[in-house]
Computed example of a mutant assay.
Amino acid sequence: MRKNRWLVLGISGSSVLFFLNVLLAFRDSTVVEWGKRVVIREVAVFKDKGTVVEVGGTVLRSSGKYGAQYGRLLKLKTGEWLAAYTVSLTNGYQRDANGGLELEVAKSADEGRTWQSVGRIKDPGRDLDNAQMIQRKDGAILLACRSVRWQESYKLPVYFSDDQGGNWKLLSEIDRHEGGVGELGNPDQGVYEPHMVFLDDGRIAVMYANEKYAKLNPGYSQIISQKISDDNGSSWGKEIKVVYDDNHRSSRPGMPVWTRMKNGKFMVVYEICGPEKCNIYYKISEDGIQWPKGFGNQIPEQLGGPYLFSLNDGRLLVTSNKSNMSVSNDFGKTWQLINSAWDKTLWPSIYQINEKEVGVVNSVPREIGGNNIQVRFGKIMK
């Protein structure tokens, strides 16, 4: 009788089994049990609200509610952790020739429970943002970021530290686009959001969002580009176009984050803004160099600013500015929504703290304005 009922509905036995498996998966979806939240960096709001004044010999700064944003972590070979994030501690380069957003680096020796600021990177007269770090086999740390003067100068510098993040020196430049004041605007024609990964042969590869083609004819509003370094980040090779589509030139693939999966293949996730409304997509490569053409495949229920992490057991976790979290147990063939670490996210990132624990870093909004950098820890359940 039950079998005939399904046949009347026009559903085969194999389809029934599929839907039952889906229902069971969603019923048993607690992959991580979320717990403690820790503040990595809290930047005080400046005392004045727009005017630079001097009171008793103290200059009160004007751009005071930014706080800290865009946190990214790195686990060192020593077991310690570094955090890099963007801070606003000056009036900004438009009011102060030596001003601009800066990058700060903090260190934790207790798996992220407490943090201490250890270093700062400045590029006077420019805004730094989008930090991301890796550690070379020789122990040196590389930090890639964007450095901009809006609508006139865009660079992707790589900084080098040989003392675990305390001091930084400029090592190389991934890409740049230079023009006169206002020449690279309407639309912007910049380069942003570098993300470095080691290839199987030990070389460092980087992906980034690239608007340099925006005013070419025919051009692209934005694409995702890749370059490879044969000398540990001291120089970078020719550009490889990773995500673009000749039939969708107004689309804006960007914010790439990629990793080597446990099966040896590479996956990159990214947003596609414009007509695709900042939905999240992914591609898979056998070697991290040759990538399929087109826009790839969409990850459901994710939107803007994605982050991807491959757990030690092979599962993939993805989150984004939509504040959802997705897991894949089959290297991206299917995705399932799971319990999320945060109700509201801005530029989140994911890390495996130890075998039993993950952490999700977030730019958390404050009642006083701006954001601080926090990490929320979660126990891996299965």
Rank of each mutant, 00 (worst) to 15 (best):
M1L: 09
I11R: 06
F18S: 13
L24S: 09
A25C: 06
K36T: 14
I40W: 02
G56S: 04
R61F: 09
S63V: 08
G64Q: 02
R72Y: 04
W81P: 03
S88T: 15
S88R: 15
N91S: 04
G100C: 09
L103W: 01
T114Y: 02
G139C: 05
A140Q: 04
A144E: 07
S153V: 06
S153H: 01
W168D: 08
G179L: 08
G180F: 12
G182Y: 04
Q189E: 15
D200N: 05
D201C: 04
R203W: 01
V206Q: 03
N210M: 14
N210P: 06
E211S: 09
G219L: 10
I240W: 02
V242E: 07
P253I: 12
P256W: 05
V257R: 09
W291E: 06
G294N: 03
G305L: 13
Y307W: 09
D313S: 09
T319A: 07
S320H: 09
N329V: 13
N329E: 13
N329Y: 15
W335G: 07
N339A: 13
A341V: 02
K344I: 10
L346S: 13
W347K: 12
W347G: 11
I353N: 01
E355K: 15
N362G: 05
V364W: 11
P365C: 04
I368G: 00
